[in-house]
Design a protein around this nucleic acid. Structure first.
Lengths: 224, 224
DNA sequence: ATGCAGCTTATTGTATACAAAGTGCATTCG
DNA sequence: CGAATGCACTTTGTATACAATAAGCTGCAT
């Protein structure tokens, strides 16, 4: 991550996630270059990546804007994610190694700890949660699937979703992970896929609720 | 579209499809730049796009190679395509406009003509086939879905698949399109999705058969 | 007022030179 | 003889200048 284009990438990405760059505003390569302390070349590189990940949109004449997500867009993204990630779970069920299984358990324990404290440690939850899903993807052993899911998951709104969770949702999430583990233990792909679909759908509704209440405030510490 | 980087993109892409650039070989930016008659800058741009579309792979130290697809990779791609495209068909069934329906029929007629002649006009088949699937995607009205499918469809091996079809397969394809049209007429998403799944799976097996027979020769006129 | 022509400015695209990083070979030392 | 190390060379990354193109504006004509 020492390359200039990588620095530009994560810098711009975090500015979008933190709300420093608000949805809809135009972004100019040169301005970003100055902000990131690099030249336009690596910034252009970063913008291409961010565009592919739908953080940024470009109009007909190639000007870039911070992506603005409607609730419909969001549901669509979750729908795709549910489809792809349940497919991943099905594949993973038949391929999971003992080591991967153990790591899944470890991260789910981490989640448990993060939400057991009197006040939940959300960043910790997020990290373990991310790892958990990553391992399933790893077990699914499909580069294309991984790449596509990255596209759906690495999106401004999706990344913020967990922050909207109340404690009950966090716990349900934890228990759904337990059920996934059970499905994996039985190498039951259908079961795993079904649980995963529900898992993602619930996440969507949790976010949608919060979204309706106007709780979609930029939150700074998500940025990584 | 910007001239140089697009020219580079389609030039390199067609070189890969035609077999001029063989799977596994390393490709250097400067060499491509000379071949395309542009500088390295637009070539780098094109390479990024081709990498996202899995025409090209990069190793740990950022060197680029023409992607080499195993039969497993291929099946995986078709599996994803079946999943995504049947999802698209389901959505399309509920949203298709009269105009889109008419255009679907037109292209399927075009396909019929292309394969009715004594010797089938494969490029014509391919073109109408492509349009047919595009219209379904258009009716599905999901930018993300469209983008993802592009990734799975715009791949070296997938693009060559139809060329492996014998006449019987071409005709079956045509009739499956008919069935899709019937499903759309009844606005029956489940039916459309089911037909589409079968349509893609058959395409996969048609290719896999040919592939096993070692018929995977580069074919020049696919390019562009 | 309104719409359009032509100019001006803002922004992105491309070329090129140079910097950094990786690779492979050859040489040397154990 | 084998492994490690340094050097030359290959390839990619970055900066910068300039070109092309789109957007916006001004002023004129209707």
């Amino acid at each position: 991550m020492s390359r200039a284009s990588d620095r530009a990438y994560s810098h711009i990405r975090s500015m979008i996630l933190s709300g420093e760059l608000q949805p809809g505003v135009q972004i100019r390569e040169e301005a970003l270059a100055e902000l990131c302390g690099v030249s336009r070349t690596p910034v252009r590189d970063a913008l291409r990546r961010l565009e592919a990940e739908l953080f940024i949109r470009r109009n007909e004449s190639q000007r870039s804007f911070v992506a603005d997500w409607s609730l419909d867009d969001l549901e669509e993204a979750f729908q795709l994610r549910a489809m792809l990630e349940s497919h991943a779970a099905r594949r993973a069920a038949g391929r999971m190694s003992w080591d991967q299984n153990a790591r899944l358990r470890m991260h789910n324990n981490g989640i448990k700890q993060a939400i057991s404290a009197e006040n939940p440690d959300v960043p910790k939850f997020l990290d373990h949660n991310r790892q958990f899903h990553m391992i399933i993807l790893e077990a699914a052993a499909s580069d294309r699937l991984t790449g596509m899911l990255a596209q759906v998951i690495e999106q401004p709104v999706v990344l913020r979703t967990a922050l909207q969770y109340d404690l009950e949702n966090l716990m349900r999430s934890h228990h759904e992970h337990d059920e996934l583990l059970a499905a994996f233990d039985h190498r039951d792909g259908d079961w795993a896929a079904a649980v995963m679909t529900g898992h993602i759908r619930r996440a969507f509704h949790a976010y949608a609720e919060a979204h309706k209440k106007g709780a979609d405030q930029p939150i700074n510490d998500v940025a990584a």
